[in-house]
Each structure stands twice: as structure tokens, then as C-alpha cells.
Amino acid sequence: MRDETRARREAEIIDAAYALLEQKGASGMSMLAVAKAAKASNETLYNWYGDKLGLFRAMAERNGEALVARLEAALAEDASPLEALDGLGPVLLELLTSSRAVALARAAAADPTGSLGAALADAGRNQVKPMIAALCQKALDERALKGGEAGAICDTYIALLLGDFQILRAVHAAPQPTKAEIRSRADRALMLTWKLYAREDTR
């Protein structure tokens, strides 16, 4: 199968899997159900993803591809790391509170084995957090921030940005935020992080 054809079919399969996950939960997202919804063979799904856990991992990876690409570009560029975080904050918050991310979180929380949660962390947080920490280290190296340790600054920023918002979304206690709300929350998170760790001569 040509690369572009497979990429298109994978996108269709992932879309079908998300539709089932959002409508019926993890139990309704069987490999057979996804294959039928995507008009693909069950054999294709098992060949490409191995099992349901592999499909779940692929869904998580697809959901975060744009963010990872932006982080990689930010780390490779000469732009200010704080400017990079300013651009990335709304993208990260919108991703983590999106209907797809919330559906993944609900499925992982309902899985008693912990396998879905581990797959979600591997495909998402475990990739993204070190890259944000690297931006924080870059800010320290360039003396845009002072003191502290990059990992702690990263934790502070993510906590201020996300808080318990995704949990509230997962338990149906909060609506999906608007673009304006996302931008405002991202601005506040970066401002407070900067105030906590800014060099005294730049305040």
C-alpha cells in the first residue's frame, strides 16, 4: 500500500475509533466495531495496531502530533523560549480539554488494568513534558528566568495552565472552553510562572 493511501486509511480508522469512543466508551470501541465503522477489515486493524491497546496508543499519538511538532520546532529555532511557550500554551490547553482528549481520559480512568492509562501517558505526557522542560531549561540558560530547576518550572507552568480542568471535563462538570477562555488561561499561566521565576533585574 502506498504511503499516502495508508496515511489516509489510518486517519479514517482513527476518526472512526474516536467517534465510537465518544459515543459508546472504551467497551464499545472494539476492534471489530472500529473496522466496520471505518469500512476496513478486522485483519487490517490487527496487522497495523496489534490489538486494542495499540489502536488506543495510535489514537493518543495522533491527538498530540501537532503539539509535538510545534515543540520540536520551538526547540530547534532561535526564538525566545518564553515566546514559544506563549504560542504553545493555548495549543496544549485546547488539546487537553478537547472532546478527543477527554474521551481518552475517561477510557483510561475506567480501565482497571491501568494499561490504557500507561499507553496514554507514553504517547502524550511522557513525550510532551520533557520538551516543555527543555524550553524551561533554555530560558534558564538564556537568563530569561532565574533560580529553580527546569523540571520544577515545567511542573508549575503545567499546573497553572491545566489545573483540574481536564478532570472537570472528564466528569462532565465543565464545558469545553472557548478560544477566548483558553487564551486568557494560557496568558495567566505564563504570567504567573514568569513572576515566580523571573530574574530580579527583568521584573
Rank of each mutant, 00 (worst) to 15 (best):
M1R: 13
R2M: 04
D3I: 13
R6H: 08
A7C: 07
D15K: 15
D15I: 07
A16D: 01
A17L: 07
A17Y: 09
L21N: 00
S27P: 02
M29V: 07
M31A: 04
V34R: 04
A35M: 05
A35S: 06
K36N: 12
A40F: 09
L45H: 11
L45G: 04
D51H: 06
G54I: 04
L55C: 10
L55W: 13
F56M: 11
R57M: 06
M59H: 06
E61S: 15
A66G: 08
L67W: 13
L67N: 08
R70N: 13
E72H: 06
D78E: 15
A79S: 14
P81I: 02
A84E: 11
L85T: 02
P90H: 00
V91R: 14
L95C: 08
S98M: 01
S98W: 00
S99F: 08
V102L: 06
A107F: 00
A108R: 09
A109K: 09
A110V: 03
T113S: 15
A119S: 15
L120N: 05
A121H: 12
A121N: 11
D122T: 08
N126F: 09
Q127D: 06
M131R: 15
D141H: 01
L145I: 03
K146F: 07
A150V: 00
A150R: 02
G151Y: 03
A152P: 05
A152Q: 15
D155N: 13
I158K: 02
L160F: 15
L161A: 11
D164I: 11
F165G: 03
F165S: 10
R169Y: 12
P177F: 01
T178R: 06
A180P: 01
I182K: 08
R183C: 03
S184T: 13
A186S: 15
A186F: 13
D187M: 10
D187L: 10
R188M: 14
R188Q: 14
W194H: 12
K195M: 12
A198S: 14
